[in-house]
Amino acid sequence: MKNVESRAAEALQSLLGQVPAISQLSVEPQLHVADETVDILVRLEAAGQQRLLACEVKSNGQPRYVRTALLQLQSYVGRKAQGAIPVLIAPYLSPNAQALCREEGVGFIDLEGNAYLSFDGIYIERQVANKPDSERRELKSLFTPKSAQVLRILLRDPSRTWRVVELAEASAVSVGHVSNVRSNLLDREWAEVAEGGLRLSKPDALLDEWAAAYRPPVGKRLNFYTTMHGGALDEAARQALHAGGNDDGQAVFASYSAAQWLAPYARTGTHYFYADTKGLERLHAALGLSAVGKGQNVVVTVPKDDGLFLDAIEPASGVICTSAVQTYLDLIVSGERGMEAADHLRRETLAWQKI
């Protein structure tokens, strides 16, 4: 924490020192006495007036911790330094965390270069696109295949509350893994703890971030050609998907093919599936598939992780396909037409009631 405070003091000195209208700048780290003070006091002159900036430094800039820091700042200014300008400093502040500061009239600086200060005719605003490695790692951990199993369950019905144990059972992952996902969601304020357990409070924010970070599941992408087409192909595929149980393998419509059953928008000449090894064998036999290097009209992905099959749905008799969330994510990364189809699907099937 001391290192963060030292870097925060340096960032303040550098940022404010570049403003010609500011003079007599003094950045003073504070000694904590029973939480009766903030971390840094800045004294300066602006527009002919002596001003005081009360700065709180936090090592974690996630919204959950930012909200607590804002209360601490406002309490300190109200009790100890009326008229002071409150400022929050952290290693990184996400757009959501920055918005919290603005809503409460609190300035902010992060060590990545984002900043907002406004007082006495002084206006400083900086935005950088970079995310620190620690933030990228945390987001990556939130969207791993195992974590994704938890997120898909939560996104089925964001208003539902879940105990950790029942969520672990429903998503087929360990209690410890669910607890990690839970903490990550709470830190970002994408979820909240209600009377019955955990529930999503900002499903759209979660899905937006997931879509931005999404990569298709790791696995073998196989290209095939079939002489079947139109209704005959659809019927043969439905029979193949519906025929097997878990012991006979798994196969589901995916991407554009799943979207045709969930929220029709853009039909393509290629049919898309996820399947395990036995499910691929069923599709191969039912559709008369021939492997090709190009000119394919059937694409089957055999994922390394089979967790996405747990979230399969049946929107019509015999039609087994990826859930709306998984279909949306796959469309997002499938090109311009896919993004248009994804937007349509989201409006039609993922317009959750706000909590």
Rank of each mutant, 00 (worst) to 15 (best):
Q98F: 02
A236G: 07
D157K: 08
T349I: 04
L283N: 03
C321V: 11
L88T: 06
D343S: 14
S179F: 04
A170P: 05
T37L: 09
A8Y: 03
G196R: 12
L71E: 15
S23G: 09
V333F: 10
G335M: 14
V57A: 02
P63I: 01
N3R: 07
Q13G: 10
D305W: 10
S290N: 13
A172N: 13
T144D: 08
V302F: 04
L262G: 07
G121R: 00
T226P: 04
R182C: 07
W190K: 03
A115F: 01
G295L: 09
L117G: 01
A172S: 15
M228Y: 11
S290Q: 14
S179H: 10
G245W: 05
I122K: 02
H271W: 13
D311A: 14
A342C: 04
R337V: 12
N130V: 14
V325Y: 00
D247G: 12
Y328F: 15
A211I: 03
R79F: 05
L52W: 12
V302I: 12
V27F: 00
A254S: 15
A285F: 07
R346P: 01
R199A: 02
E235P: 09
R182W: 09
H177G: 08
G107V: 00
F224I: 12
E45L: 09
Y76L: 14
A191L: 01
D157L: 04
D110Q: 04
F253A: 12
R137G: 01
Y76V: 08
